[in-house]
């Protein structure tokens, strides 16, 4: 057996090096440096930032998982690189490798370590989910993780093809196309849709919840800094899905109060026409439909897909 660079043992030559130790020594600095970089350099800038409690939770979750993933990834890569360099086939060596069919100790260790990592991740994820009131994710209509304290600010998010509107039930129930939130207050988003499934994604707030027709989906957050919030739709909802964006604002409490007072007066005429505030809206239940029908030829309320069988059709 030729020993080109001395790393491969031959019968009379140098002893087989301790490959395990070598790989460990190569891996250790790589993993350490990667983890330190992730924690101290990259971590504070990881998306989605720390503008709200839920965004901060997500940021820390991504950071901690990166810190756990980096050594694992480094181990596989360092091992792979070492193997490809050291255990590559040498010209003229036509013998097969050593017949190792397996190693129970190695397998059991591997399974044990991965199980521990995975289970701790699951526990960690659950704790993070429960901690800051659902971590900004949609929790359905009966949320089990709620913020402590009094009733949060209620903001209803209504998705429709292809725009978001917002209702503020605690301020007379006016409806507007702009999203305005006060800093430092708990916010409860009640998210619903009038037609198909959308997904309300307030990027900087770390809030994402599907807007389902006829279903109220609740998400909590608490903005901690003022600034702009990009709102997008994260579920393909038809032709103009990509354009279903708005820019929201997180402002001081006094500015928010001033805004609601103004909006309430300005939109008073419109608010009178709106249906009473509810958590979901039947897309085709149109008040005074018969009256509309009598006044002018009705063409296609609700599409008439189900014809006269539709319960709310005239």
């Amino acid at each position: 057996m030729p020993a080109a660079d001395g790393t491969v043992a031959d019968g009379a030559g140098r002893p087989e090096p301790n490959h395990g130790l070598r790989i460990f020594l190569l891996w250790l600095p790589v993993a350490l440096v990667a983890d330190l970089l992730i924690w101290f350099v990259w971590g504070p800038h990881l998306p989605p930032g720390a503008m709200s409690t839920s965004a901060a939770t997500q940021q820390s979750a991504i950071k901690i998982m990166s810190v756990m993933a980096a050594p694992v990834m480094a181990l596989v890569l360092v091992y792979g690189a070492y193997a490809l360099v050291v255990w590559r086939h040498r010209e003229g060596d036509d013998e097969d490798g050593p017949p190792i069919h397996g190693n129970t100790r190695v397998s059991v260790t591997w399974i044990g370590v991965t199980s521990v990592i995975v289970l701790s991740l699951a526990v960690f994820g659950t704790v993070e989910l429960a901690g800051p009131a659902g971590a900004g994710a949609g929790e359905g209509n009966t949320p089990i993780w709620r913020p402590s304290g009094g009733t949060p600010l209620q903001v209803q998010v209504i998705g429709q093809q292809w725009r978001w509107t917002y209702r503020y039930p605690q301020f007379g129930g006016f409806e507007t196309t702009s999203l305005m939130l006060p800093v430092g207050e708990n916010v409860q988003f009640n998210i619903t849709s009038l037609d198909v499934i959308h997904s309300f994604w307030a990027y900087q707030l770390g809030v994402k919840a599907d807007a389902n027709p006829d279903i109220n989906n609740v998400a909590y957050t608490k903005p901690e800094h003022t600034g702009q919030v990009q709102v997008r739709c994260a579920e393909l909802c038809g032709l103009w899905h990509a354009d279903m964006t708005t820019v929201g604002q997180v402002v001081s409490l006094s500015a928010f109060n001033a805004w609601t007072a103004t909006a309430r007066t300005q939109l008073a005429a419109l608010t009178k026409e709106l249906p009473p505030y509810t958590l979901t809206y039947d897309p085709n239940a149109v008040a005074q439909l018969g009256k509309v029908f009598q006044k002018a030829g009705l063409s296609g309320a609700g599409g008439g897909f189900y014809g006269s069988q539709y319960p709310v059709q005239p």
Partner: peptide, 23 residues
């Protein structure tokens, strides 16, 4: 700049939002 109609008027499409609304 996209423009659209917000009245679901796609007759004979579910919820009136198919067909002409998306074409």
């Amino acid at each position: 700049y996209r423009w659209q109609c917000f009245v679901p008027c796609g007759l004979s499409y579910l919820d009136g939002n198919g067909g002409p609304m998306q074409t």
